[in-house]
Computed example of a mutant assay.
Amino acid sequence: MDTGLIARRYARALADFAEPKGEMKRVAEEAEAFIEAYNGSMELREVLTSPVLTADAKLDVVRKAFDHELSASFEGFLRLVIRHHREKWLCFMLPAFVGIYKQRCGIVDMTLTTAAEVDGDFVNRLSAQVGTVTHSREVRVHRKVDPSLIGGFRFRIDDRLLDASIATQLRRVEQKLGRLPERKI
């Protein structure tokens, strides 16, 4: 059974169901919260995959995990998945849905890693440039500081990485030159 195919079909069905109802953004937020809870809680994973619990009991546990009432689209989706015994694939379905949501709404996630803090003006200019190049309506910037870069920056957009760090440039020079033998003076 192709897990990726199942996940994409369910994700697309959720998107096609939620979009005309105007619930895409809310469902995406609920999906991201669910993913975080699912990844962070072994108990939630055990409850969802338990063969002993009924579908209604599993859905009750999921409802209690949220501090608000779930959207009709998301709750209906969870009910469908659980009743068809596909809950073990939720960890693939929901990220696939979030990807579809971002694609349909023109949202791009960008991770900017620098050796030191950079000012907001630089980040805003870079974000605007990324938005122009990717034809995106919204660029979400996630900033990280990693002193091991020495200088420069790295930024990742989806599966593309631009590495303009000093550490990487030094590694490349070292690889090209090879390890030089130490000289005795």
Results as ranks from 00 to 15, higher is better:
residue 5 L to M: 14
residue 7 A to N: 04
residue 8 R to F: 12
residue 8 R to V: 09
residue 8 R to A: 11
residue 10 Y to E: 00
residue 10 Y to W: 15
residue 11 A to Q: 06
residue 12 R to V: 01
residue 12 R to M: 04
residue 14 L to E: 05
residue 15 A to C: 03
residue 16 D to H: 07
residue 16 D to C: 06
residue 16 D to W: 02
residue 21 K to P: 01
residue 21 K to D: 11
residue 22 G to L: 07
residue 22 G to H: 08
residue 23 E to A: 09
residue 26 R to P: 01
residue 26 R to T: 08
residue 27 V to P: 02
residue 28 A to R: 02
residue 29 E to F: 15
residue 30 E to D: 09
residue 31 A to Y: 08
residue 32 E to I: 01
residue 34 F to V: 03
residue 34 F to P: 04
residue 34 F to G: 05
residue 35 I to L: 09
residue 36 E to D: 08
residue 37 A to G: 08
residue 39 N to K: 10
residue 39 N to L: 08
residue 39 N to W: 06
residue 39 N to G: 10
residue 40 G to C: 00
residue 41 S to R: 07
residue 41 S to W: 04
residue 43 E to P: 00
residue 46 E to N: 13
residue 46 E to M: 15
residue 48 L to W: 02
residue 49 T to R: 08
residue 49 T to H: 08
residue 51 P to R: 02
residue 51 P to A: 05
residue 52 V to P: 01
residue 54 T to A: 09
residue 56 D to Q: 14
residue 58 K to G: 05
residue 58 K to A: 12
residue 59 L to G: 06
residue 59 L to T: 08
residue 60 D to F: 06
residue 60 D to S: 08
residue 62 V to T: 04
residue 62 V to I: 07
residue 64 K to M: 12
residue 64 K to Q: 11
residue 64 K to I: 03
residue 65 A to W: 03
residue 66 F to K: 15
residue 67 D to H: 09
residue 69 E to G: 01
residue 70 L to K: 06
residue 71 S to T: 11
residue 74 F to R: 12
residue 77 F to S: 04
residue 79 R to A: 15
residue 80 L to K: 05
residue 81 V to I: 11
residue 82 I to V: 09
residue 82 I to S: 07
residue 83 R to N: 06
residue 83 R to L: 03
residue 85 H to R: 13
residue 86 R to I: 11
residue 88 K to Q: 02
residue 88 K to G: 13
residue 88 K to C: 02
residue 89 W to N: 02
residue 89 W to C: 01
residue 89 W to T: 14
residue 90 L to H: 14
residue 91 C to T: 03
residue 91 C to N: 12
residue 92 F to L: 10
residue 92 F to G: 04
residue 93 M to I: 15
residue 94 L to R: 05
residue 94 L to Q: 04
residue 94 L to A: 04
residue 95 P to F: 02
residue 96 A to C: 04
residue 96 A to I: 13
residue 96 A to G: 10
residue 96 A to Q: 02
residue 97 F to L: 06
residue 98 V to P: 01
residue 99 G to P: 01
residue 101 Y to I: 15
residue 102 K to P: 02
